[in-house]
């Protein structure tokens, strides 16, 4: 009997030690890989607060640190692939832009017809038409989780986004999202050639109509390094937008 007790005690000791060791291993094991799709969808809500909404965007271009030009747009967005942009600044008054899925038109008062924009034309300007009109990355890009790293003091997930539709503005985006809530922190934009064309910092967020939304974004030109654009968002509010606002056949109603 005492021998059986001894064996049982040893067995129990081994079991307890093994259990404790396993607990230690599990607690230090690598966490499950974050779900890139879920993170990307969550991050889009900081730029697209409602299924249909209107927002004003003021873009200030800086050259060599000094403000150069200013542009003002009113962006009406419905869903992930319908955007109508009204150009409000004096230089561009009367211009409009329509995005439907992978197709984009611009209406310039001094041209004789609405103009179809090619993907390369979407990249013109420090802040391109695509930067203003296409902000739903979950619809345009396939994400892959790369790593977790700090940007300043902020712990971030790093996602590698690859364009999954031809309407996407960029071929690839490196995207830093805050770990605690997937709020965008930083991004790098790449062309099909692999050229790093722009970088972005998501500088300010503020509550707007009950949602925490992006308030200020800075785009840095990685080709002309003395050039950057600051995008300031204001007046974001949900709006009931009719589908006919987003029809290319109404070009004379733009």
């Amino acid at each position: 009997m005492s021998r059986i007790n001894c064996v049982l005690r040893v067995f129990l000791l081994i079991f307890v030690v093994g259990f404790l060791f396993t607990c230690v291993l599990v607690s230090h094991a690598a966490p499950a890989t974050p779900d890139g799709e879920a993170l990307l969808k969550r991050s889009d809500t900081f730029r697209n607060g409602w299924p249909a909404y209107v927002v004003r965007v003021r873009i200030t271009d800086f050259e060599s640190g000094r403000p150069d030009e200013e542009h003002l747009y009113e962006v009406s967005q419905k869903g992930t692939d319908k955007t109508y942009v009204d150009f409000m600044s004096s230089r561009e008054k009367g211009e409009h832009l329509l995005m439907l899925g992978d197709d984009m038109w611009v209406y310039l008062p001094d041209t004789s017809r609405p103009v179809r924009i090619t993907p390369l034309e979407r990249l013109t300007g420090d802040a391109s038409n695509g930067d203003v009109a296409r902000t739903n990355y979950a619809a345009d890009y396939s994400p892959v989780y790369l790593r977790t790293e700090k940007v300043g003091n902020v712990e971030c997930y790093v996602l590698d986004l690859t364009a999954k539709r031809k309407g996407a503005t960029y071929h690839r985006i490196l995207y830093w999202l805050r770990v605690q809530d997937a709020r965008p922190v930083r991004a790098e934009f790449y062309l099909t050639s692999g050229k790093h064309i722009k970088s972005a910092t998501f500088d300010e967020y503020a509550p707007s109509s009950g949602k925490e939304l992006l308030r200020k974004l800075t785009l840095y030109d990685e080709i002309r390094h003395n050039s950057r654009s600051v995008l300031e968002y204001s007046g974001a509010a949900p709006r009931s937008l009719p589908d006919k606002l987003f029809n290319q056949g109404r070009s004379d109603m733009f």
Binding site: D103, V115, R116, I117, T118, P119, L120, T192
Partner: peptide
């Protein structure tokens, strides 16, 4: 009108 590829538009 139709956009072809990255740089072409035909009409």
């Amino acid at each position: 009108t139709r956009v072809l590829g990255q740089a072409w538009e035909v009409h």
